[in-house]
């Protein structure tokens, strides 16, 4: 890690101005759980850090009106345990609680978490850090160098949304839940404020896997909003991983339902751990919508979500696992209907 300057931004506007002044050599830092980690790994090398974690009011959690509004620097812990979120939107609360250890949840912010970068081991472990040196080619880290995961140890990699250039999984849990809940991202940049539906926030890897977010240079995530919906109550974030806690998803599903008795009126289904971005499955939603939910139908919906999936050398099991995770999640969510 090279020497760098560190300053605390008093306001979002000041942060954006400082970022612009640094001409590309700055990064915003909030919790730092991902950025500082990547700096230690030699993947990120900012010359200037602009601390946005003390910006007044940007940690507000508002639940009174028609929307839930989470300030960009609100801590994952605080959002997860906000009573309205915990009781009426379990999918959001659970996605945060299952995302990281309690220590990391006390550090990481809900805005920063949207920008968490992949856990692909070829991406993380070959960048020239002292832990190991530039051994693994990676298009995300070094555009054009190739993808080592393709044809390699790809057990944790994506089966949906992959390209010839990259199969790295989007690591987040919270963004998956937000995807199911049609959240909106509020940003502030040099050109002023801008809102973007979360569905438009993430980019498929395509030929440019190093470009992961539809975020303009210098834009800062200032808030996330979710329109209130009765679907929040009959919801869950179901996550299967290689151990019972403190691990990234092998496959996960965010499900939120509106039910008429046993019949599904509307369904929102998003997937994590299996795709290159947080992944909404309209196909799975269509299968359960309008029908009484049975375990068989739930599994059929799960399978539909993976109709276009492509397995690699070691990760094809995720296609079946992912389908079953959706099936279980649908049953869990349905049981929570009022």
């Amino acid at each position: 890690m090279r020497a760098l300057s560190y300053t605390v931004a008093p306001s979002a506007e000041a942060a954006v101005a400082r970022f612009a002044a640094a001409q590309g050599s700055a990064r915003y830092i909030a919790g730092g759980t991902n950025l500082y980690d990547l700096m230690k790994l030699g993947i990120e090398h900012p010359a200037h850090l602009i601390d946005v974690s003390r910006i007044d009011g940007m940690d507000a959690i508002e639940t009174d009106g028609d929307i839930l509004r989470f300030g960009g620097r609100a801590l994952m812990t605080d959002v997860a345990y906000t009573p309205v979120v915990r009781d009426q939107y379990p999918v959001l609360s659970e996605s945060l609680l299952k995302a990281a250890s309690q220590q990391l949840r006390n550090m990481a912010t809900v805005g920063g978490n949207l920008l968490q970068r992949t856990r692909c081991m070829y991406f993380r472990n070959g960048a020239g850090s002292t832990s190991m040196v530039g051994v693994y080619p990676c298009n995300k880290r070094e555009p054009g160098s190739g993808c080592s995961a393709i044809g390699g140890l790809d057990r944790t990699h994506a089966v949906l949304g992959t390209s010839e250039a990259c199969t790295a999984v989007a690591p987040g849990d919270w963004p998956v839940a937000l995807m199911a809940m049609d959240a909106t991202i509020e940003m502030l940049g040099p050109e002023g404020p801008r809102n973007l539906p979360i569905a438009e926030f993430y980019r498929l890897p395509g030929d440019t896997p190093h470009r992961e977010f539809n975020l303009h240079p210098g834009e800062l995530v200032t808030a996330i909003t979710v329109r209130k919906t009765p679907a929040g109550r009959a919801s869950t974030y179901h996550k299967i991983r290689d151990r019972e806690s403190y691990a990234f998803a092998l496959a996960s599903a965010a499900v939120a339902l509106e039910m008429d008795g046993a019949t599904v009126r509307t369904a929102r289904i998003a997937l994590g751990g299996v795709a290159t971005t947080p992944w909404r499955s309209r196909a799975a939603e269509a299968i359960v919508t309008g029908s009484p939910l049975t375990p068989e139908l739930a599994l059929r919906a799960g399978r539909a979500a993976f109709a276009d999936a492509r397995g690699g050398q070691h990760n094809a099991f995720k296609i079946e696992l992912g389908a079953r995770v959706i099936a279980d999640a649908l049953i869990i969510a349905a049981e929570r209907r009022a």
Binding site: G31, G32, Y36, D37, L49, M107
Partner: peptide
Amino acid sequence: PVSSCLTL
């Protein structure tokens, strides 16, 4: 509680 290794 925080992880002091990832806290600047």
